[in-house]
Write a protein that binds this DNA or RNA. Structure first.
Lengths: 116, 116
DNA sequence: CCTTTAGTTGACGAAATCGACATGTTATCA
DNA sequence: TGATAACATGTCGATTTCGTCAACTAAAGG
């Protein structure tokens, strides 16, 4: 389970998805990461896997988590809203945390029925 | 800014920290990941950086995010309050998100002054 | 003293990514 | 038709990690 062969396949799609979400071309991403455009293409099309350093560059340039690129989480925006709230949420006691969760859940349901 | 040389250094410490937090020896981690024990030592002590596949193996075996191992986030605990709220937070519009953040911040300050 | 366990360090060839570059395809637009 | 842009594909030597192995040090226990 959790095969390495499929991990490469997943990464290919994740990189495409992330780049598409950020609406940048391969050339744009190449400039942002400092990598040659052919490397981006090799990642998305060929069987190449990024090195330690290049994985970080890709994640930073696309503003996505490396866990997303590696397929370890399905949420592309993991780093934004939740991370900003993390520090404050960690300071809450159990009771207030429950209150906060309910409050947010109410807001979420409201936004679902009448989106911005 | 955001140097690659220091990234390797950070990874070394993060791996040690994570392994220490999970209370496993290098040999234990080696078995869990299927890597030779010397590789673990090379990661923590030497200048080696893990490949794409081995980074995933390490993160899975230690149950930490790859973002933590790479130093892109400071939180080792994958399961936090923020992650539980992620789904709801993603449904909020910008305005309500701001409200939620302020609300939580108020609770956090209150809990700091009078802890549970 | 001996044994075991944890960890370090260095070396080896094999394999993979590296950056660089050349070439081809496909689509869009003038 | 020609030009340009986005992307694919493949090759080159260079670099790096790969797994494996050997040879240590150091600490803990009998």
């Amino acid at each position: 389970m959790d095969d390495d062969a499929t991990a490469t396949e997943i990464f290919r799609k994740r990189l495409q998805t992330a780049r598409d979400a950020r609406e940048v071309t391969q050339q744009d991403l190449a400039k942002k990461t400092g990598l040659p455009p052919s490397s981006i293409s090799h990642f998305e099309g060929g069987g190449r896997k990024p090195s330690f350093d290049n994985l970080r560059r890709l994640a930073n340039a696309l503003d996505v988590s490396t866990d997303f690129l590696l397929g370890r989480t399905d949420e592309i925006g993991t780093i934004s809203a939740a991370k900003r709230l993390q520090a404050d949420l960690d300071r809450l006691n159990a009771y207030d945390l429950e209150i906060a969760e309910k409050f947010i859940r109410v807001l979420a349901r409201k936004d679902d029925s009448s989106p911005s």
